[in-house]
Computed example of a mutant assay.
Amino acid sequence: MKIKKEDITVTMEAPGTIMRAMEGLGGFTVSYHELPEGTDFTPLLKGLANDSCHSPHWGYLFEGAIRAIYDDGKEELIEAGDAFYMPPGHTAIVEKDAKLFDFSPTKELNEVFENINKRIAELS
Rank of each mutant, 00 (worst) to 15 (best):
E63I: 11
L100K: 01
E76G: 06
F103Y: 12
G81K: 02
A98H: 06
L77Q: 06
M1G: 14
P56M: 14
A83F: 15
A83R: 10
G47K: 03
I8L: 03
T91N: 04
G26P: 00
E76P: 04
V10E: 12
I120Y: 07
G26W: 12
K118R: 14
L48I: 03
D71E: 06
P15M: 09
Y70C: 04
I116D: 02
E95I: 07
D51H: 02
L100T: 02
L48N: 02
I66F: 15
A98Y: 08
G24M: 05
E63Q: 07
S55A: 09
R67K: 13
E79W: 09
G81N: 05
A49V: 12
E23Y: 06
H54T: 10
I8K: 01
L25R: 13
G24Q: 07
L44H: 00
S124P: 09
T17K: 08
E108R: 06
P15G: 11
K118I: 01
E37W: 14
K99P: 04
M1F: 14
K96D: 05
L35E: 13
I3P: 01
R119D: 04
L77F: 15
G27K: 04
I8Q: 00
L45A: 01
E23L: 06
I116E: 01
V30K: 03
I116Q: 00
M12Q: 11
L77S: 08
P88Y: 09
A14Y: 12
G73V: 09
K96S: 09
Y60R: 02
T42W: 04
T17D: 09
I78K: 00
P87L: 06
Y60G: 02
E63V: 09
P43R: 13
L44W: 04
Y70R: 01
G24T: 00
P43N: 13
D51S: 05
M12K: 11
V30A: 10
F103A: 06
H33F: 15
E37R: 10
K46D: 10
F113V: 10
D71G: 00
Y85E: 13
L100N: 02
T106F: 09
F62Q: 03
Y32G: 00
I3E: 15
Y85L: 15
E76N: 06
E76C: 12
I78W: 12
G38Q: 08
E34K: 11
T91Q: 02
T42C: 07
T39I: 08
V94G: 01
I116L: 14
E79R: 07
L44M: 09
V94S: 00
M22R: 03
G64W: 05
S52T: 11
F41W: 15
N50W: 13
T106Q: 10
Y85D: 11
D40P: 00
W58L: 13
L61P: 01
K96M: 11
I116F: 14
G27A: 08
V30S: 09
E95S: 03
K118H: 10
R119Y: 06
L35C: 03
M19Y: 12
M12P: 11
E108C: 08
H54M: 14
V30W: 05
I120Q: 05
T39S: 09
